[in-house]
Design a protein around this nucleic acid. Structure first.
Lengths: 255, 255
DNA sequence: GCGGCTAGCCTGTATATACAGGTGGGGCGG
DNA sequence: CCGCCCCACCTGTATATACAGGCTAGCCGC
């Protein structure tokens, strides 16, 4: 069965094509969380690749959290949840796309403002200094999942406001002009205020995770932000780099 | 060059051994950020594996952010390796004492029990295995501040139940018999159930931080625990080790 | 001396093949 | 009818091999 050995350049690599097809089927809803995905040998037949190539595609999707695999059983779509990795500054848009879902950002407000006491303190600027501000609601498959209120230090990232947030995410721009060298996250459980409730479409007493995040590039504070996530359906994960824990159900949740 | 084809079971897989050696050399400082790592063919010679196996080890380390690779040049240790000591395993008693307050622990339940599916999964034991369980409410100045439901792996810490929790905290005992080498924290905002509300003395709709924590000592899971903290008055902090951020007020809170 | 070509090293991708070990179902024997 | 064993299917790991394409150092000719 010797056939089309190389993807003849230009075209996407075979293993990437396989990954893309699976992600597309998840995005379309053809594959639901918990559904069984084609086995390696089925992919071999469908794509005309070798099993190692199919294996690589599935293994990488597992690494990325999209699929769960177990020997002897099969490969399945991971249950949906937001894994915000506290160890890494991750872009929520990337996370959503990795889960095979659509990401959209609703820009509620963007502009310059004078730093109040809290903002000046957080960005280590003087009271009343001009700072850039954005308020964005992130949507996963048209459902709001994060409210992001961000303040950016104009001394570090002067072009922040003039970037087109649709072609390049704020995150991408910032990592380009000021690579993050340090960060701080403070996490609390709060009752969201009315504005946040409105943006996230939440009921009155629904608990929210609130993350206060600051990032540094060298000595300078680049951004500070408040992130709101709707309650128990989302979670923050933090693990040591050494340990390789496999995900398990949280105690008390049904498996 | 036909040789030791299989890792003869038991032993670590070849690609894992390669990864571990590279990680060890980085940890020891033998490999510094920016240094060149052995090429695939050098690893082939050194470990007696095939190039695909060496490739996999290096590729996974790249995925994990430890290495950077570029075709034609070589493989290098990633520059920053933003190494995070995150949400450290801290003893709540220590924290309270550091604040200059009194700590007291109310022991609600202690005993042996059979692991249900979730607990067995979390501790990597078989269903129905005997595990040690404790439910403790921690008080700061006589006010409840944390509910701690903990399950302990008896294979690792057999004397857990017979220690006197008043003279030596569970935490102290555990760090003695099984020093923690890895951990996992999953954080959510939840509405507490009635039991937790009662222990913490909370009103109905008060949001709670729930932390699901697992700790490892070597390969074995030592404990898993559910920790509940009353809402906004408590916060988890996570920061990168590099940056030395000074505490500031969270945006929106009055200073 | 300088520019271009080539040989050699490196990663990236892909194939065919092999054995291991987990899981579950169906068939056969008691 | 029930239990046990074996087989079919699945993933996990590993090997040997091949061709592509990026990059560099060094040689050779002008």
């Amino acid at each position: 069965m010797t056939k089309a050995v190389k993807p003849t350049a230009g075209e996407a690599r075979h293993y990437i094509r396989i990954k893309e097809q699976i992600l597309a089927e998840i995005a379309e809803g053809k594959l639901q969380p918990g559904d069984r995905v084609s086995s390696e040998s089925e992919l071999v037949a469908a794509f005309g690749v070798s099993r190692m190539t199919a294996n690589r595609a599935l293994r990488e999707l597992m690494f990325e959290g999209v699929l769960k695999r177990s020997a002897g059983i099969g490969t399945f779509v991971s249950p949906k949840h937001l894994d915000v990795d506290l160890l890494q500054i991750r872009n929520i848009a990337d996370e959503i796309l990795e889960r095979g879902h659509k990401h959209k950002a609703a820009i509620v407000a963007v502009g310059l403002m004078k730093a109040d006491a809290n903002v000046a303190d957080a960005l280590e600027l003087t009271l009343g200094a001009e700072v850039m501000h954005s308020l964005i609601v992130h949507m996963e498959n048209d459902q709001p999942i994060q409210v992001e209120e961000r303040y950016v230090n104009p001394l570090v990232a002067p072009d922040y406001l003039s970037t087109d947030f649709h072609s390049m995410t704020p995150h991408e721009y910032l990592t380009k002009v000021a690579p993050i060298t340090a960060f701080e996250h403070i996490v609390q459980a709060v009752k969201p205020d009315t504005a946040v409730r409105k943006y996230l479409g939440l009921k009155n007493d629904y608990p929210c995770l609130r993350v206060f995040r600051r990032t540094w590039s060298g000595e300078a504070v680049v951004t500070c932000a408040l992130l709101y996530y709707p309650g128990a359906q989302y979670r923050l994960e933090a693990r040591s780099t050494k340990g390789p824990p496999k995900p398990v159900a949280i105690l008390g949740e049904k498996k």
